[in-house]
Design a protein around this nucleic acid. Structure first.
Lengths: 337, 337
DNA sequence: CGCGAGTATGACAGCGCTGTCAACCGGTGT
DNA sequence: ACACCGGTTGACAGCGCTGTCATACTCGCG
């Protein structure tokens, strides 16, 4: 019941360790009968190659690092789940690294992580994937990496993304279609690219509908519950409050709902509230949030896939857009007349 | 800017690699002046020891595995955050492993993980920490492990826990104190120890208050939103519905709120709803949930601490209870007369 | 002043693999 | 019969560390 090594397997299959290595790494030029003998030995000994030995000896470690600095649990969880799913397929190990605190020397820390773990590559999630110093450092050390929803296309990396601007247009159009004209927008965290894009999409639609921009109805938020709550209180205190609020993520939308409930305002009869992301929260608040589904898990999976492919082939792949979709639930309704 | 090795450091500090190793591992018998020279070299070369080489050569890998099979994002996130925090302190690497799917051969998988990663030990979270086959297998291979909130005290491991039963008594007493007598309870997932304990605590208090048990008011849930929602719909359809509902976690409580809202029942005026765990969700639903704070992050941190200590000293530590506390918010109020 | 008992340091093997290179095997073309 | 070639296999070095053991150095004390 002890740990078995490649020597044990080699002995059991009556081949050299090198042949075992070949079989395990799917190298060519192994006779089928030999391959089967080796696999049988692997099975029966319940052998698992040592990652440490592999990464020390070879050029691959089968470890991928996932860097994040987004404090939302749901976001993180989806990210992680998507990346893990893809990793498991090719028996990669995923190492999670939180870089929320270190803004300055993030590049140094990332390189340290690479040195320590011998990670083959990194998956960078938003917004850490937009740190130019980090990207430069990785490129200089030729560490392969991919980005999830980056700001501008990184020069040296593949990435997955969704069209935030189009998505914002869709949900704004949904509100406009319900007859709303006084629509407020609670903007996301200024550090996040998505916040900018979503605001642009909102403005696109409003302009197309011929609605005059009104800065009173645009509030700065930070993608958290609290800021959505505060912004909505201010909006509701206006002489003529909005008939609809587009919050640029679900947490802020939940905050908006809270403020509305407290002010005894009926959603959606007196006020429509729309969110963004379709996280777990959007399904458990009351009323259930109309929102846009952001396919985080899928984006993470695709990005990880791009990375793994790159590790195998050496070539970057094309950026890949993942589809969003509008999810209409109960928090939006016709504009009051 | 290339990766530097222990040889580089040794050369820079004009010592042997063994001495560098000594300094980095805080071994005794190194002259202070030598130590400083080495540290300076480490700094200036930005040296990070290779985990692979370390674990191959030595008996420690500085890797800890965290096993979970609880699909709640918030639970996971807290777990992970707590464990990571402690790991960082001693430069341990945390490896997350989801074992949701594999119920049967979980033991085999865990040992495979150990073989692959050379992990020094495992942190097992509830409910996976209650798989006897897993615990046995780990013990047989003498893999150090600790548990978070295990069912029965594992023989060969330290663990951290909270007193679910007492916590349930507290929140039940809170409801009783508000004058409620017809209190329904939505029980948690039968696989989770906590579910049993919380139900016992509830019954303790009800009995102490002299309330006759009423099986109509006890519903089986599964710690998810949906089951809380369904159970509550059934409860509200009763000839004489309860005046208060204790849901054994926040997700189910959120489901209860949803059902109440849909039935146009005012919370807390007509119905009180209490949750359990004090997760993020309890602060964003309306009305904000009265609940019990379950210190998951702290439990994870403490358990990880126990593991790391054990790795250093070889000795188990005492089980450690982490304090919960009642959090009264807006979802509970006086019983209607 | 020399000797024993630490104290400080280094030489070296080897952890479990992969990469390199050489060897071998059987069929082909001439 | 022989050189040749591609497919198949194995011997062996070495990745960057730690553990073991040997060695050199230091200090107190007889």
């Amino acid at each position: 019941m002890q740990r078995s090594t490649i020597d044990d397997v080699a002995q059991a299959a009556a081949v050299s360790i090198k042949t075992v290595s070949r079989v395990l790494n799917h190298e060519p030029n192994v006779r089928e009968s030999t391959r089967q003998r080796v696999m049988a030995a692997v099975e029966s000994l319940n052998y698992h190659p040592s990652q440490s030995a592999r990464s020390l000896a070879g050029s691959r470690s089968y470890v991928i690092g996932l860097l994040y600095n987004n404090p939302s649990a749901n976001y993180m969880f989806d990210l992680q789940t998507g990346a893990m799913e893809r990793c498991r397929q090719d028996r990669f190990q995923l190492i999670i690294h939180d870089c929320t605190r270190r803004r300055q020397d993030i590049a140094k820390h990332a390189l340290g992580l690479i040195d320590q773990t011998h990670a083959d590559g990194l998956v960078l999630s938003a917004p850490v994937c937009d740190e130019p110093l980090l990207l430069d450092a990785l490129h200089q050390r030729s560490v392969p990496y991919v980005c999830i929803a980056p700001n501008q296309s990184p020069h040296h990396a593949s990435y997955s993304f969704m069209d935030d601007r189009a998505a914002a247009r869709e949900i704004t159009d949904h509100l406009l279609g319900l007859g709303h004209r006084r629509i407020a927008v609670i903007v996301g965290h200024p550090d996040h690219y998505s916040a900018v894009q979503r605001l642009l999409g909102f403005k696109d639609s409003m302009k197309a509908a011929g609605v005059e921009p009104n800065m009173q109805l645009q509030k700065q938020g930070f993608y958290d519950f609290e800021s959505g709550y505060t912004a909505t209180r201010e909006l509701l205190a206006l002489a003529t409050p909005p008939s609809a609020i587009l919050a640029c993520n679900d947490d802020m939308a939940a905050g908006a709902l809270m403020a509305a409930h407290e002010a005894n305002i009926n959603v959606p009869n007196d006020l429509s509230v729309a969110g963004f992301d379709d996280t777990y929260i959007s399904k458990v608040v009351w009323p259930r949030l109309t929102t846009v589904h952001q396919p985080i898990q899928e984006m993470a999976k695709v990005a990880t896939d791009q990375l793994i492919r790159q590790l195998k082939s050496g070539a970057q792949s094309e950026p890949k857009r993942i589809d969003h979709c509008l999810v209409v639930r109960d928090s939006t309704g016709p504009a009051p007349t």
